[in-house]
């Protein structure tokens, strides 16, 4: 969309060396986490057996656990984490606000409202909540974007953030109203809204996979355009950036990624919020690097958290939504303290 993308500042030599190496290391970490996620659990299964289950399935109990439980769960974890990290980076670029996360666009509250309606009206549960969540997220996000756009011009950052917060508040209020009056809905919602990968199978993944794939492709291609946008609307327009188009494409990408992630795993807001900040420490503000980093680091955090959650309690599991914050937040705070944070 831009003829020649300007880089915000010329990166230092170390950063130019570190960025590709760091990305390889992060991918390596992701591979390790995925492997651990398949082998570790209530019943530890050695890596050799895992390999056998994938290549030479013999129908034994161990192999069944690997194929029907752990592999789907790991795949969903990787994709959901990547989608959330990527969408968070996009939201922060779109709104130019470090507090922005996909939820600002109304994703989580829209999904939650639709889930409440599905439970309240149809008594839905489990996999039946996937589509309501996705549709609710998409509706809310479109409404927020329309409200945040001024007239025929494109959405401005502050208005977008305010519109999202306002709509989220209204939906949250309505949700509270329903759950206060109805115990059954409250009981379903309190478990759904924690965010979890427990019991997710490949059917759920295949339902949301098309959206995830399109979202990842669209948004990774946006890096150069977002770099131009970071210079401010006027300068970006002078450089030939089509601002309304870029903003709309970013928003569509966020809706696809986050709608799908929330539909698959429930609202996990923390990943989208902190992963971009962590990635920015390594990459600096250059979106072409920031976006892939955010995706890989998001996937690392989510799969690692899910694995930890399976073994940390003796007899039960901790939901991944709980662990991401418990594990991620101290690391994040240490990071914030140790560096001068790269501002948006």
């Amino acid at each position: 969309m831009v003829l020649r993308a300007p880089t915000p500042t010329r990166p230092t030599l170390t950063r130019r060396v570190i960025r590709p190496i760091g990305l390889i290391i992060a991918l390596g970490a992701l591979a390790v986490c995925a492997l651990l996620s398949v082998t570790v659990g209530a019943k530890p299964i050695p890596a050799a057996d895992v390999w056998a289950a994938l290549t030479d399935y013999d129908g034994s109990y161990d192999h069944d656990v690997i194929r029907s439980l752990r592999v789907p769960r790991t795949i969903i974890g990787v994709f959901v984490g990547a989608a959330l990290g990527l969408a968070g980076a996009l939201m922060q670029a779109l709104t130019r606000n470090p507090l922005a996360e996909p939820g600002i666009l109304g994703i989580n509250s829209g999904a939650a409202a639709a889930v409440v309606v599905a439970v309240f009206v149809f008594g839905a549960g489990g996999a039946g909540l996937v589509w309501p969540a996705f549709i609710g997220a998409a509706f809310a996000a479109v409404a927020v974007y329309a409200l945040g756009s001024r007239g025929r011009a494109s959405a401005t950052p502050v208005r977008l953030a305010l519109a999202g917060t306002a709509l989220a508040a209204v939906l949250q209020g309505l949700i509270y109203g329903v759950i206060v009056l109805n115990d059954f809905v409250f009981d379903r919602i309190r478990f759904w809204q924690v965010g979890s990968l427990t019991g997710r199978d490949l059917d759920i993944f295949f339902q949301v996979a098309p959206f995830l794939v399109i979202g990842v492709v669209v948004t990774l291609a946006l890096g150069p355009s977002l770099n131009a946008m970071a210079l401010g609307d006027d300068l970006a327009a002078t450089l030939g950036a089509k601002i309304p188009l870029i903003r709309a494409a970013t928003a569509v990408g966020v809706i696809l990624l986050c709608g799908a992630a929330t539909a698959a795993a429930g609202p996990i807001w923390f990943v989208g919020l902190i992963i971009p900040h962590a990635a920015r420490v390594i990459t600096g503000p250059d979106q072409r690097w920031l976006l892939p980093y955010a995706a890989v680091l998001g996937a690392v955090l989510l799969t690692a958290a899910d694995t930890v959650g399976r073994v940390i309690l003796p007899n039960s599991e901790l939901e991944v939504g709980i662990i991401t914050a418990l594990v991620g937040a101290p690391l994040f705070i240490a990071l914030v303290r140790s560096r001068k944070m790269a501002q948006l």
């Binding site: 470090p98 507090l99 923390f270 919020l273 902190i274 900040h277 914050a325 418990l326 991620g328 937040a329 101290p330 994040f332 705070i333 914030v336 303290r337 944070m341």
Partner: peptide
């Protein structure tokens, strides 16, 4: 602000 986010999330 960033530290606040982290602690709040925990």
């Amino acid at each position: 602000v960033l530290v606040g986010i982290g602690v709040s999330a925990m």
